[in-house]
Nucleic acid binder design. Structure first.
Lengths: 161, 161
DNA sequence: GGCAATTGCTTCAGGCCTCAAGGAAAGTCT
DNA sequence: AGACTTTCCTTGAGGCCTGAAGCAATTGCC
């Protein structure tokens, strides 16, 4: 009986990691597709744009592109394009630093600031809606335990520097 | 003292959903970037391709593109391109149904089958490695609780049909 | 000072992704 | 049968994404 329990647990426990990974992936895919759709419909924005703007929102003086790149986990080349498009429609402003002419700093325009505030408010509401059926206690535990997964993953990347 | 506890809990509890969402997003982004890098380096494949092949692997007779699309949560238009590229390098085979000439069925070639088996084995090992520092009991609980999040989100999409 | 290495951004090719519009086959209705 | 609708896939425009190569400014070393 003990043996059976152990055995069935071993069976059950098999590939837990893989199952969890697939579920994490499916869940975030599902949710971000929904967020994407709504951002697009109601604000004409994309998720990466929203993410980038969120970083700039809390830094009144703006951020250099490299910093933006690492905070949003997006490659340098990609940030260039994102910033270009956002500058084109007047949401952000880009300027070179006079003391180091290699670096470019991006910051929100006034228009961009109000624009983002509207989006952020809606965005938070959508997330709360989607997680409405999950108990607060579960949310709290998830926050901590997903944190553990992240930490663990972080320590097992190819070339950690 | 009770009041304080409640009050601080309310403070703490504020925006739990948003925080959890951001953490989920960051975690899967981190992990999938790593998986992507390794798939590319060691197999010259991409994550969406791997995902698509995984679906075909368990269906010996292949799948119609529409079915593939919904299983991989990828739009129809996108599946077309993915399948085209995979067929071009001989991993899968695409053929029209004789009885209904609208539908296309994709299935693994023999070469594709062995190719995928190698990838799948490595992929599972990578995932286990990355989650190595998370206790089995936590994994099990996460599996269930992330499932709750997914269910909740699923019930709060825009146009549910 | 002069030159090599580094840093910060941009460019490019190839692939992923979505939405919207389109075309062709099959099913439906009169 | 002929026309309408639905189903299944493809096409195309626009944007995201990565890795690699390139260019310019700055730093460090002799």
């Amino acid at each position: 009986m003990d043996l059976e329990l152990v055995a069935s647990d071993a069976q059950e426990g098999k590939k837990q990691e893989l199952k969890l990974w697939l579920r994490l992936l499916a869940t975030t895919k599902l949710m971000s597709q929904e967020i994407r759709r709504r951002l697009r419909r109601e604000f004409g924005a994309t998720l990466p744009q929203f993410d980038l703007l969120a970083q700039l929102y809390r830094e009144k003086d703006g951020l250099r592109l490299g910093e933006l790149s690492s905070r949003t986990m997006v490659t340098n080349g990609n940030v260039t394009g994102l910033v270009e498009r956002l500058e084109a429609d007047g949401t952000i402003i880009r300027e070179r630093l006079p003391d180091d002419k290699r670096v470019t700093v991006a910051r929100l325009s006034d228009k961009g600031r109000t624009y983002f505030e509207g989006m952020a408010e809606a965005h938070e509401r959508w997330i709360r809606e989607m997680m409405a059926e999950v108990e607060p206690a579960v949310l709290t535990r998830l926050l901590a335990e997903v944190g553990q997964v992240k930490e663990s993953a972080q320590r097992h990347l190819s070339e950690e520097d």
